[in-house]
Nucleic acid binder design. Sequence first.
DNA 1: TGCTTCAAAGTGTGATCTCGGTTCAGCTAA
DNA 2: TTAGCTGAACCGAGATCACACTTTGAAGCA
Lengths: 236, 236
Amino acid sequence: MSVELWNGWSRLGPLALREGQTTQAQIYATLREALISGYFRPGEEISLRRAAMVMGTSVTPVREALRQLESDGGLEVFGGNRVLRVPILNASELLDIRDIRINLEGFAATLAISGMRGSRLRLIDNACQLMQRAADAGDADMYLENNWRFHSLIYEAAGRPVLMSMIRGMWLRVGPLIRTAVTAPMHFDRSMDSHYAAMEALRKTDAAALQAAIIRDISDAADDLSASLQDQVRTA
Amino acid sequence: MSVELWNGWSRLGPLALREGQTTQAQIYATLREALISGYFRPGEEISLRRAAMVMGTSVTPVREALRQLESDGGLEVFGGNRVLRVPILNASELLDIRDIRINLEGFAATLAISGMRGSRLRLIDNACQLMQRAADAGDADMYLENNWRFHSLIYEAAGRPVLMSMIRGMWLRVGPLIRTAVTAPMHFDRSMDSHYAAMEALRKTDAAALQAAIIRDISDAADDLSASLQDQVRTA
DNA sequence: TGCTTCAAAGTGTGATCTCGGTTCAGCTAA
DNA sequence: TTAGCTGAACCGAGATCACACTTTGAAGCA
């Protein structure tokens, strides 16, 4: 196991133990955020013992957290040794996920309009501006963070917790790929076009237009993800 | 803890250890099927040690299986003691789940037409007939078993594993309620109407008609579930 | 009779240990 | 030089134990 493969852990550290939450829940939340943010590369292996060492706990809570992530599709077992790794998606799985996202996030968008308040709209607008700034500066970290914030703020307005958790599950699966997708030519520009269209639809409280903008964003992203899939195979 | 609450376990027994599968995976699969089939009532508590005793294993694999089910929404933590129990859904969660099902299962239905083969169609027809027979005999167990088989056979024809797993997750959440829903007046008749409509659409390879039949089935079931929700609150 | 108290039983959580298996570097022998 | 072997290191899986906490029910008191 080369150290280079473990760069995902370099952004993480020992757990800052908070009361009222189980260790397992904190590890799960930490790793899920890391996966959505693309800290781990597709194919990167996650070892129980090493993870426990980084987190400063025993393997027991780590195991349960990783098992949960496996159940969510954020990790997969690999090889005869049953090592857990970040899934390497193929084209058909990507298509599968894209269509689910179009259905669920498109539906959430139509519901979001009626649940939209001024304060939330300002937060969404803020996230949109920060994305633009990140795109101008070429800051992928800042861009991805605010991209998730932008979308989740919209979907949360739908007031559907179960729907929200399913959407989050989809982002967990594509997270590790997104970081490579943003390097696609013109990705920022095309993506921001959809985001501005969504903002306009939100201001006009036009549910159909918002849904269309969201669906276009997902479709464009899926195209770039497919392209980065080729790179991934080529460099593997 | 009264023994009466534990009737869900009476249908389960010690694990028949199969090779090539981890104990944890077998426990998870067993309990998920039991939940989908409605063996456990909403609010029923699941204890690690008791479950381990029934399964004939230690608590470790049971713990991971239950944690996974909690992550899927099939179980929830309850009270200060963090006991796991079968979730008691409220009306808004039911609405949330219904709409997700309409989106995902409706979408899967449209895809299923092109992936349909004669052999699969015969299996679906068989499940439909068994459902009718169970409805005539008032056999809820047999009805529910073939209901899930009927629907899953259709959705699997879409050839979308991720979509399929998300649909299964939704059934896991409503499973414990369905058993009480089938006692609703005319439930069998209305449900079988939709099923026959689906069969006809399958034979005509009419995607739109199949989608409409599935959506109607889900909507009707949701109405009966809401009604059974009232009973649940009243008897609690 | 009704209330408080307290101990026993039950709960999940996390750490530790053993086990069987895989992986891989380094050595031996052809 | 290379094919094959070997042993150390590492992996996850599962059992067991200690611990803190909650629940519960019966005893004891007002």
